[in-house]
Design a protein around this nucleic acid. Structure first.
Lengths: 350, 350
DNA sequence: CTGAAAGCGCTTACAG
DNA sequence: CTGAAAGCGCTTACAG
């Protein structure tokens, strides 16, 4: 069933059918009603490709999850405590506004071709990128496409410095620096002076911010920064577990460990516990993200809450806004974090 | 940049460009190379809508998660231990084969319109439906579309009985009945005679199968089936928690409880523990699905492993196969389950 | 208010 | 082996 069939049945032209479908004002109620009836009766749906080809929107936004430095077979990305809520919220928000969501994952640089194609082939009205590495070249390439693009977790200063064409672009971040400062100062307030860190992935904006804040806060309070207390975690459970295992072999342990995300904090907890080191009696642990699991393990994990849902929602609203906008704009939003105190920290034993 | 531009630059006609793009055999290597070079140089990508309109595939499959009877705000569907792995595997498998995945969630009957549209508007080559209720009308409607459709977890006998047009249709199930029998007989083997159950959602195929198997197995072994030991869980953590809380108030407790999924088993464990009832010392617990979390709680949960990854993968391969097929077919695959014994069951105290 | 016609960017018989 | 032309199903100036 094509618009022409509807036109014949309703006794009008295809033009008029199109006007009705697109809700144009210049068609009298009676004609509109007549056409609408026929459409209803025949469950007619205009072919989305023909519409798009003739210049209409696709009503689809892309969501591209980039996960390139993951270790082998760590491909369970939609079960990851960071990505899963994003997918959840993006799909929900987009669907509620009448958009479909086109998903593609990027595991290797080659996969990137597919996201560029999604834009070039005009499959989507706009796209959201999560997990972008510090890779300005890539962002530059994406930005040259005329389509709206939203980056979640990306260093704005880099974009500024590179003087990218920022039309149709938006960046959504969280205040990782401030959140980390709050966490570290909380530990200091409890009396800790030997505070360690498990790093996130350093080619990630949030990874760098969390690390920087850790270092600066210790310095500011005149506390020691010990190489041996700084572990490489890569945001991954497995890496963190191994690193903490090594840590437990050392002479001296930190009395508190700030973990750059909850996954690593949970892994650290397992590693400590399995080696007879009690959390929080012997070592305090603090995570970041406040993932679902944080409040469901024992002891319950103190964590910096990342407003991931709000961020994902904002990302969708932003792409849609950019799709509708006649004037291209550049904007950036930074969401505040909040320390959620639970049971994994206490004052150090004397 | 359109195919016509490429044609001019390469000194051929659009037809030839098209033949090269579609890898048709009847074009000599030299011509092919010439055209390919121009395409490369200009990063040309054929417009996907124009291709689709002219009869090519969309290289997109739909994934529709249906979640209608959930309680309010239970909308965190992509974080659900059943849906999340499916999304994961579907996206991965489809992407690896060059397909995009179009996602839409169905929270209310109205949302269903969007999945029908996705087919009618030809946005996708085929689709996968997860979470379909016992709703043959809906399936009938979906099936009348000519596009390939794969149902995960649906009662085949219903489809047979209704004599649906089964072209382009496939159903993927797991052997829930057998899995449940194995679990119950394991409990019986441990010496349990008072075995309770938390039901899943009864308008779901797996929910009904698991319940039936429970009942039949108890009967077969001459064990009592007590109304008061059969709880309504709806597959939901919250419901299960409340029901188990009520159960703990009763005079007599079962010595073992079979839970129709892991989420409910975990909730049950929490409810028991918080009320001073020890798992597995006072009550044995067994789950279904073998979700990620099952092996990460204490005590580790004994559970019937659902090969959800294999099922999701099979679903994708099936849609793709149906897309390629010239002869429409109907097929159904049933995946075996397997009891994974951990620490949440022991013989009942005497 | 409304229709005929051109155009969106491809593919594919058809003819040579 | 290859090009001219029709067609896929819409939308949108244009003219009336």
């Amino acid at each position: 069933m094509r618009s022409e069939d509807i036109a014949k049945l309703a006794g009008v032209s295809r033009s008029t059918v199109s006007r009705v479908i697109n809700n144009y004002p210049n068609v009298p109620e009676s004609t509109r009603a007549k056409v609408l009836r026929v459409i209803e009766q025949h469950h007619y749906e205009p072919n989305s490709f023909a519409r798009a080809l003739a210049g209409k929107r696709t009503d689809t936004i892309g969501l591209f999850a980039i996960s390139m430095t993951e270790k082998e077979n760590a491909s369970r990305i939609y079960q990851n405590s960071y990505f899963a809520p994003i997918v959840d919220m993006v799909v929900d928000t987009a669907n509620a506004r009448g958009f479909y969501v086109l998903i593609h994952t990027v595991y290797s640089p080659g996969d990137f071709q597919k996201v560029k194609q999604a834009f070039l082939q005009k499959r989507i009205d706009g796209g959201i990128l999560v997990g972008t590495q510090k890779d300005i070249e890539l962002v530059r390439e994406m930005v040259t496409q005329e389509a709206p693009l939203v980056l979640i977790d990306y260093d704005i200063s880099e974009i500024m410095a590179e003087r990218l064409n920022k039309n149709h672009l938006a960046v959504i971040n969280s205040m990782d620096y401030e959140g980390t400062v709050e966490a570290i100062e909380y530990l200091i307030g409890l009396g800790h002076r030997e505070i360690g860190l498990i790093k996130g992935r350093m080619n990630t904006f949030s990874g760098r911010e969390r690390y920087l804040a850790y270092e600066n806060t210790l310095k500011k309070h005149g506390l020691p920064i010990r190489e041996s207390f700084i572990l490489e975690g890569e945001f991954l459970k497995e890496s963190a577990y191994q690193e903490v295992l090594k840590l437990t072999q050392q002479e001296q342990l930190p009395t508190a460990l700030f973990c750059s995300n909850d996954d690593m904090a949970i892994a650290a907890m397992e590693a400590f516990t399995e080696n007879g080191i009690s959390v929080p009696d012997q070592v305090s642990l603090i995570g970041f993200d406040d993932a679902q699991l944080a409040s469901r393990i024992t002891p319950k994990l103190t964590s910096v809450r990342l407003p991931i849902d709000e961020m994902a929602k904002a990302a969708v609203l932003k792409v849609i806004e950019l799709c509708d906008a006649t004037e291209p704009t550049f904007s950036t939003i930074s969401f505040p974090t909040r320390l959620v105190v639970r049971d994994s920290c206490k004052s150090p034993a004397l």
